[in-house]
Nucleic acid binder design. Sequence first.
DNA 1: TTTT
DNA 2: TTTT
Lengths: 179, 179, 179, 179
Amino acid sequence: MASRGINKVILVGNLGQDPEIRYMPSGGAVANITIATSESWRDKATGEQREKTEWHRVALFGKLAEVAGEYLRKGSQVYVEGQLQTRKWQDQSGQDRFTTEVVVQGFNGVMQMLGGRGQGAPAGGQQQQQGNWGQPQQPAQQNNFAPQQQQQAPQQQAQQAPQPQYNEPPMDFDDDIPF
Amino acid sequence: MASRGINKVILVGNLGQDPEIRYMPSGGAVANITIATSESWRDKATGEQREKTEWHRVALFGKLAEVAGEYLRKGSQVYVEGQLQTRKWQDQSGQDRFTTEVVVQGFNGVMQMLGGRGQGAPAGGQQQQQGNWGQPQQPAQQNNFAPQQQQQAPQQQAQQAPQPQYNEPPMDFDDDIPF
Amino acid sequence: MASRGINKVILVGNLGQDPEIRYMPSGGAVANITIATSESWRDKATGEQREKTEWHRVALFGKLAEVAGEYLRKGSQVYVEGQLQTRKWQDQSGQDRFTTEVVVQGFNGVMQMLGGRGQGAPAGGQQQQQGNWGQPQQPAQQNNFAPQQQQQAPQQQAQQAPQPQYNEPPMDFDDDIPF
Amino acid sequence: MASRGINKVILVGNLGQDPEIRYMPSGGAVANITIATSESWRDKATGEQREKTEWHRVALFGKLAEVAGEYLRKGSQVYVEGQLQTRKWQDQSGQDRFTTEVVVQGFNGVMQMLGGRGQGAPAGGQQQQQGNWGQPQQPAQQNNFAPQQQQQAPQQQAQQAPQPQYNEPPMDFDDDIPF
DNA sequence: TTTT
DNA sequence: TTTT
């Protein structure tokens, strides 16, 4: 767990959609969220107000993934601190592709919900609505990674890049395998 | 220049190769560098020492780009602070691709050489050797972006992703156009 | 405005009280706020839940000070990014004392209100309530630093340390004088 | 080990003197270092180049303290990441005083030596010279905090503030007691 | 796709 | 002195 160099990302922004929770074969949770940050400025040439939004792919692991799944929702404001990680995957034509994510994990990972009083998910009895996360009908241990990937591919296609399989599974909070 | 949210990256690491300096049509400098950070750990299963290196694409603009070109070299240790930015480009087959970079620019961008006394380029009389950067034989104003891009594409191909053109040119230190 | 080394503080927390706004002889605004961050843990020995709150003295300058005065209130959640600065002052007995603050200022300073919809001050017609800030009855230019300091001394005494005079006035957003 | 809010300090700078290593009653190591960061600018009024150095008190705990003691020296360049902490102590006249330090500790603490090959302590056979740190003639367990404090007080007096005793001992890497 |  |  030593490291040479510093690789740190700090984001504060709002979720573009509800978190997607999955489970690794080991049973560790993974939450994928997208966070928006934006800059606005006055265009010198036209004098108009302009705005540009940057979307960040963030992957949380272990306990933080579970908290994200429970409390974060589309629109939630959040602070995350993690590391940059670029992973290689193959598209349908077998070509190499790369996706860069912010990995929030282990000792260095931080996730804090912002904005106070209950901006997130209902704490109470509505947990049935969470059925599409983590496949509650099946024990978490059975939820493996690859099948879920397949399902997501089509819709992700329209976005940016299919979610690659975590062939080398990222370190769960209790594991010693770094990313 | 207002912003909603925080988008901050901090890296400390070593350059994988000499900086590549180019000039935008406006004359503003752009330096592309790759920074390595690494983690090492003992594999629980095998007991072996393992190491994983992460490579970061970093783009510096304006004055910082010029300083990078003058003083940084392959192996230089550097601190950079910038923002995450994902840009879309088209590959040869016209397919959309995305590349994420750390943009170091303007007021929020920071670049500091580390390691003290002259780890980088010779400060003294060898500045002629910089001829291949920034095409000093021609006035900087003539160096536009696209042609240079073409030249770089082949070698970059082997790496990760061709360097996309900056169609929407990133803000030079003196410009009001954000990234 | 060059710098050797990195001096960066990032805080996310809540204000312990309303901001105190003052004006320097130059007319530049200064806002002093206190931000709480806290840690909670289970005491190994007793098994009890414990919590410790850290209070941070933060000084904002220029535009950010004005925004703080207008929108932040006791309890507001805020992100600030600034620099550590320790200043020397003399107590009543003439002894040297030191106070460390987070200075949020100029290009590197960041202040973002968190928590969304109107957690702060009313945007509308209640601005008269702000009368005790910045002495609106008098032109800002007349509000100088030292007198205000005198008034605050007694109450501050009970706290931590009297607010020292800014003998070497900190850089306003438009100044070139660093802190 | 939960926390509400973010309390983060990042420093890159050089040590003003050799680290001072002490041991807590528990046997955990504590290293005190001072780090300089500086800003330089051109004075608008006089046109002169000016420089201001900020000195930071940093306390490292546990393993990081040991590494600091072994490898850092006066002049060493270092990256540290920690938390702001203000502690109260009494001066000779019994008056309350406050000292703010950067605490580098536990999971969130980071310390990285910069500048590459052997800028710090001799890696080789000179480790006997470290005898004045950590009192190697006596078992670490016997080195308690308070006596060492007494010795340091006089010289520290000239500086900023006597090193307060850690009455509530800060969390060692293996402890669950936060700071 | 978020937020103001 | 804040917040949960």
